[in-house]
């Protein structure tokens, strides 16, 4: 009795985590090899790029913005890494640094236009989505650039630990940003700006530098995701990251982040990433066709938000 009650309460408070566990259990029982090493490594290998991008997206959403450009920026940054390492023959670390810098610049341009020219982030980042994709094709000549096995070490499980350096980076990032968001003044300011910008301004907080910073961070993280993507593939694909922004928004929203701003959790968003990844792979494992997979994934996003909305209403009513 007591155990059930406490489990129930815990599940209610950690609704996303509970759904994730249920999902894993469901696939574990309905498929013979879901709990296999191959499945696990497949899922984990997909995670770092989406996780890193989702962290940036969540920050942008919290200040009531949106960053639609992350997928293209990731593709562009991967292209820069590939061309830098292969065509220009730069050392790999320098090519990666260039990729990161490219993402930072794209994000900073977004942020500058949104914060200091008062343009809506939806429009600015939509424009950047097109531009970055165009630049990705231009730098690679629309060809996939093979970088080689050297870069793949980032994405391969480290000996003795069993997970890749990229995944470790992503997890450390999640924890760090969650800490910043909940336990520092910076995090509190971001939430305040997203919750009521005018009230924030009247409390002596200038929202502009924070808006700029958040979009720049999102761009830089898309750059890192580009590096991870190149590492995962061993090559720079100019088509990488198409539609990634939508997955990132979905993951953030499943994790309890509000598109209206002022509410969001990095840990929650990470759980959202896991739910999407588990769902994708689990459905494939039990032999669901690609169209059905998309149908179910879409429905899950909407249902998750519905339940979340209902819970919020329920909580404020009681």
């Amino acid at each position: 009795m007591n155990i059930w009650q406490s489990i129930k309460r815990y599940a209610e408070e950690n609704f996303i985590l509970a759904s994730l566990i249920l999902l894993i259990l469901f696939f574990g029982f309905s498929s013979n090899n879901f709990f296999s090493v191959i499945t696990l490594t497949t899922i984990l290998n997909q995670l770092p790029a989406l996780t890193v991008v989702t962290v940036g997206m969540t920050l942008v959403l919290i200040v009531a913005g949106i960053d639609l450009s992350v997928g293209s920026v990731m593709g562009f940054c991967a292209a820069v890494v590939g061309v830098g390492a292969v065509a220009w023959g730069l050392p790999l670390w320098m090519a990666c640094l260039m990729g990161l810098g490219t993402g930072l610049i794209c994000g900073a341009v977004n942020g500058l236009l949104v914060a200091y020219f008062s343009l809506p982030s939806f429009i600015v980042t939509l424009g950047m989505l097109e531009m970055a994709r165009g630049l990705a094709y231009m730098t690679t000549g629309s060809q996939t650039v093979y970088i080689g096995s050297q870069i793949q070490s980032l994405a391969l499980p480290l000996p003795g630990i069993g997970v890749s350096a990229a995944l470790i980076f992503a997890i450390v990032l999640v924890i760090t940003v969650q800490f910043v968001l909940t336990r520092t003044v910076l995090g509190r300011y971001l939430v305040a700006i997203g919750s009521n910008e005018q009230a924030a301004r009247m409390s002596g907080i200038d929202p502009r530098p924070y808006r700029l910073m958040v979009l720049a961070v999102s761009g830089a993280l898309a750059g890192i995701a580009g590096i991870f993507n190149a590492a995962y593939l061993g090559s720079a694909d100019p088509n990488a990251g198409i539609g990634l922004e939508l997955s990132a928004i979905a993951a953030a929203v499943i994790g309890g982040t509000s598109l209206m701003g002022g509410r969001g959790s990095i840990i929650g968003a990470f759980a959202g990433v896991l739910i999407i990844a588990v769902l994708q792979n689990g459905l494939a494992q039990i032999g669901v066709s690609e169209p059905t997979k998309r149908l179910i994934t879409g429905a899950v996003i909407i249902i998750a938000v519905l339940i979340d909305r209902w819970r919020a209403k329920h909580a404020s009513a009681s």
């Binding site: 509190r188 305040a192 919750s195 005018q198 009230a199 009247m202 409390s203 002022g262």
Partner: peptide
């Protein structure tokens, strides 16, 4: 419109500029 941070706790509302 000028003061409250809706959806945030009483404590967070008091502490915002305080920091």
């Amino acid at each position: 419109s000028m003061g409250l941070f809706p959806g945030q706790s009483l404590l967070a509302n008091i502490m915002v500029p305080g920091s």
